[in-house]
Amino acid sequence: MASQQEREKDVQSTNPHGFREMVEEQYKKIKENAETYPYVWASYIVVYGGFALWTTYRWRKLRKTEDRVRALQERLRNLVDSQDSAISTSTTLEKAPPSIDKSSPK
């Protein structure tokens, strides 16, 4: 007898129409509970809403900091590249032998 009732419940839960009724019934229970205990639900909203706002704030602050660090790293990389190219240019000029011009009289 119990197994037959379990099969009927399984059939209802797999049936889309039964699933919809189950969701509507659950919604009605939650709505009734919220109307019965509004202060409890309001406290949940305040606490978890505040936590969500704080998390969002920290996440955005972290992203802005990361963007700023990436920009500074790129500036530093460009500065180092420009200094390296300036040093390599000056060393090649110093190492180049002076040109000897044979046409000028001594």
Rank of each mutant, 00 (worst) to 15 (best):
S88A: 15
R20P: 00
L72F: 09
A86D: 10
K95Q: 11
R75H: 13
K31M: 06
T89Q: 09
W59R: 10
E35L: 13
P16C: 02
M1D: 11
R60T: 06
E32G: 07
K61T: 07
R60P: 00
S90N: 03
E24N: 08
R77Y: 05
Q26A: 14
P105R: 09
E25N: 13
P16R: 02
D67S: 14
K64I: 04
D101K: 06
P16T: 03
Y57Q: 04
I87C: 03
L72I: 05
L93W: 01
S104L: 15
P16A: 02
S99Y: 06
K102Y: 10
A42S: 14
E25H: 10
G18M: 01
I45S: 09
F19K: 15
D101C: 03
G18I: 01
R7L: 15
R77W: 04
N15M: 03
L93N: 10
E6T: 10
D81F: 03
S43Q: 12
D84V: 02
T65W: 06
H17T: 13
Q4A: 15
T65D: 13
Q5L: 15
I100K: 08
T92C: 06
E21C: 08
W54E: 04
L72T: 03
S3G: 07
R68H: 12
W41K: 09
R60Q: 06
V40S: 04
K31Q: 13
K28T: 07
E94G: 02
Y57L: 14
K95R: 12
W54T: 10
R20I: 13
S43G: 03
Q12G: 11
D10M: 14
M1P: 06
E66N: 10
T91Q: 12
R77I: 00
N15Q: 03
A52T: 03
T65C: 07
